[in-house]
Amino acid sequence: MSAVLVKTTINGDTVEYACQPDEPLLDVLRNRLGLTGAKEGCGTGDCGACSVIVDGRLVCSCLVLGAEMDGKTLETIEGMADGDKLHPLQQQFIDHAALQCGICTPGFLIAAKALLAKNPDPSEEEIRFGLAGNLCRCTGYDKIVRAVQAAAKEMRGA
């Protein structure tokens, strides 16, 4: 196997890397680029812990090849805060105790960000279905849904 050279944009920065042609993007992020915020909970697209946004679309980075990223734009959890200012979702997750162990948190935040970009004023049901691809085993989702509702409200300036 010979490596594939990729030039991409991650959280606004140009990044170049070489990866194996069969290497999932998640492994590239974690093992080659040191971006370990995306987690591997399953490796099969069933848990959402590795969620990232590629060209504006929410995806599981375990189900994308690193080789596909040439010329793409990626957003990961590491780029969510604006300098030392947390994104409203990040702050609301802390304030609402919407995380316990925290392993699913980066994936939830990315998925919630994608959800609110499409639908700034989601109902509880829309939030629940919008986040159904992210598994959390600690919280029972209650406080996560409330944190997203609060962040949505804050972001709408309501």
Binding site: R30, L35, T36, G37, A38, K39, E40, T76, I77, E78, M80, A81, L86, Q90, Q91, F93, I94, D95, A97, L99, G102, I103, T105, P106, L109
Partner: peptide, 18 residues
């Protein structure tokens, strides 16, 4: 607010595989 909150919402918290 929990002391490990910011690390966990920014992806900096280090878990077993990190």
């Amino acid at each position: 607010r929990r002391p490990d909150g910011i690390d966990k919402v920014t992806g900096r918290a280090k878990y077993g595989a990190d």
